[in-house]
Simulated assay, not measured.
Amino acid sequence: MRMFLWTRTTPQRDGALENDIVVHEYTHGITNRMTGGGTGRCLQTTEAGGMGEGWSDAFASWTEKTSSAVDDFVMGQYVINSAAGIRTHPYSTSATVNPLRYSSVKALNEVHNIGEVWANMLHNVYASLVAARGWSATARTNPSGTEGNIVFLHLFIDALALQPCNPTFVTARDAWIQADVNRYGGVNKCTLWKAFASRGLGVGAAGFTDSSTVPTGC
């Protein structure tokens, strides 16, 4: 894992002193090793590499939650000494605060920018699960709970092992849906679909063209 000094301030600030950056980098180790059976070579396309950045931001956000409130999350405020952080938008359930959608990827070709789209989708998935199932203050030590933040983390990890090498937004979404079937019997299906569809990754989304459609019954 490589950590760096950030040069935007004087004196320079050490990324190792900001928890969300440390968690972001550790999560690269998880996603690279679990996707594609441990090869460490299955997040190589621009889209998959971008999603790798997104998972890392999303997991950093998960570790920062201290209550059931799903506030906007800003990455990297300390290292650049700015409330705006290092991303283009805060992660938010508000489309005004963060307008990024599946179709936004069409105009992007840099992995961190693509990652923002995926991380914001997962921010919305997290918010939906917590709204539906509640929040546990002991999620880090009691993985057997049924609260939304615990469910989110299980599905986050389970889906990595189910998705193909070099996943796309669509195949990664499908892995989340399948992970819920495998672990929870699919009880969160509609919650997941509605969250993904709210940002354009509904049924029929393809080629970075949005779809807000959810399955029949949802």
Rank of each mutant, 00 (worst) to 15 (best):
R2K: 09
L5N: 08
T7P: 01
T9C: 15
P11L: 14
Q12I: 07
R13Y: 12
A16Y: 12
V22G: 02
Y26A: 09
T27R: 07
I30E: 03
R33A: 13
G36E: 02
G40F: 05
C42P: 12
Q44L: 12
T45K: 03
E47V: 09
A48I: 10
G52H: 03
E53S: 02
W55G: 01
A60H: 06
K65Y: 02
K65P: 08
D71N: 15
V74W: 01
S82Y: 11
A83D: 11
A84K: 14
T88P: 15
A95Y: 07
L100G: 03
S103Q: 15
L108E: 10
E110T: 09
V111F: 00
H112K: 01
N113S: 15
E116L: 05
E116N: 06
V117P: 14
A119S: 15
V125W: 01
G134W: 06
A137P: 00
A139L: 01
R140L: 02
G148I: 06
F152H: 11
D158F: 10
A159I: 07
L160A: 04
L162G: 05
C165P: 07
T168H: 10
V170R: 10
A172S: 09
D174I: 14
W176C: 03
W176G: 03
I177F: 05
A179R: 07
A179G: 13
A179Q: 09
N182L: 07
Y184S: 08
G185W: 01
G186V: 04
V187P: 02
K194N: 12
F196Q: 05
A197D: 04
A197Y: 08
S198W: 02
R199L: 05
R199G: 11
G200F: 08
L201W: 00
L201R: 03
V203H: 05
A205H: 11
T213L: 14
V214D: 06
V214K: 08
P215M: 11
